[in-house]
Design a protein around this nucleic acid. Structure first.
Lengths: 248, 248
DNA sequence: CGTACCATTGAACCGTTTCAACCGGGGTGG
DNA sequence: CCACCCCGGTTGAAACGGTTCAATGGTACG
């Protein structure tokens, strides 16, 4: 048996490496680690599988663990005392959950479809980070990226119309949807209309109406409730930026 | 002459230390540094004074410098192509400007009143951070705090009513306003009504009307256009959380 | 002391919400 | 096997919160 499989070169890992078949090993925070450190890191944690709808953690609960998403999509949401909900984001494969210094979870995280994660005790994780400065830098970079996304969302929530919000959202989702070369751009929408509405600061009926309008304007086409084809990407881009004709 | 002034103890600095009279030396990112490192850090940068209304940097411009606010308040805003503006935050003394890995400024920063900053070339700053891991950790902590604030703002923009937004904002401003012991809580509002509106996702007229309603409900009292007294903090808290009576 | 700009107030309008009905697919039980 | 039901999604009509447009008031600054 080879120490490194012949097929594996450069950043690739030996077949017997615990992260060998990790689908996000180049995207997740662990991509800052070398083979040896990565293996040590991986062994310090365990794996967790979530069924669709299952909760990973609850807002306000003491956070004893951190996670890295390897498969599936999670919904991150905050509840107001009277039941109003804001979805502050969705977590995709490669995303890290645990970017906080508070010891309570800042939001509730629930799987919108079956999801898999790497799980680490926070104490261990912090110790590991302490010993690996490049990890600290990678966490900072993850935080900076989230901050940038948060600012975009503030523009969307504070200043965009319903049409613009939905158009922006669809384009954002195309970036998280695997594309088939040669086929038209598609947007996979694993979450419910309610989730979209709570993310976009709208009501479910408004999201539904805006989607119908986009279909009527031939900017998108329905494949199923959870999958759209983008027929006019430029048109959608114009709508999303607020420079579009009121076609939709 | 003493190396350390007799009045200076513990974290205090010698009179001849360049940060001796810095009003934010315990709040800014540099608070992670010891005396020697701090002095070296300070000497690697310069000071910058902004007049009210003056811009520090423009969204999209290449960011060659980073800043630490020592006095005054800045407005951080993003412009949509058609002129709509979202104020993503205000920067107060102790806040750091430069939490990004992009090489362009993510927002426009302008002084809402006279402001003073420490300025560092980004290259030098990055080099310094590289050499001082505790600084890296402090930057991460600053990013995590901003992220938490950004999430709060998403709830506000996505799910709160105009009344709740203005109430939340006033409470937030009290935390940035120096309080005089024994006197009623006050909120200093150095920014214009337009700035508040663009921060809260409202129009200037709505902000004005909501403030008037809070006055009429005797929850606040006007000292001047830029200063309010909070007469009923609990009532305001209830309004801000969405659990308030519709008194206002 | 005048003027220009920012803030406030009023009234009509409009985009989104609210309330309600309807549709359709998937699972269950008769 | 199929009828029924449940639930998420869509569509329609009325209501409403916040915006828009317009006029007035106040204040800081030249």
């Amino acid at each position: 048996m080879y120490l490194t499989d012949p097929r594996c070169e450069d950043r690739a890992l030996a077949c017997d490496h615990p992260c060998f078949d990790c689908p996000v090993r180049d995207a997740a925070v662990c991509n800052s680690l070398g083979r040896e450190d990565l293996a040590e890191f991986r062994r310090s944690g365990t794996s967790k599988l979530l069924a669709a709808g299952e909760a990973l953690c609850w807002q306000g609960e003491v956070a004893t663990e951190v996670f890295s998403v390897t498969r599936g999509v999670l919904r991150l949401s905050i509840l107001l005392p009277d039941g109003r909900r804001q979805v502050t984001g969705f977590a995709f494969p490669g995303d890290f959950l645990g970017l906080t210094l508070e010891d309570e979870h800042p939001f509730t995280a629930e799987a919108v479809c079956e999801a898999q994660l790497c799980r680490f005790s926070r104490a261990r994780f912090d110790g590991f980070v302490e010993a690996h400065p490049q990890m600290e830098r990678r966490l900072y970079s993850a935080a900076a990226n989230e901050l940038s996304a948060a600012r975009d969302q503030m523009i969307l929530l504070g200043r965009k119309t319903a049409t613009e919000r939905v158009a922006s959202f669809l384009l954002q989702m195309t970036r998280h949807s695997p594309q088939r070369p040669g086929e038209p751009l598609r947007a996979l929408l694993p979450m419910s209309r309610t989730d979209m509405a709570d993310y976009l600061g709208l009501r479910i009926e408004t999201v539904s109406r805006e989607l119908s309008a986009l279909k009527a304007a031939r900017l998108v086409r329905t494949v199923s409730v959870h999958e759209l084809q983008i027929l006019d990407r430029d048109g959608l881009n114009r709508l999303a930026a607020g420079t579009g004709t009121s076609a939709a």
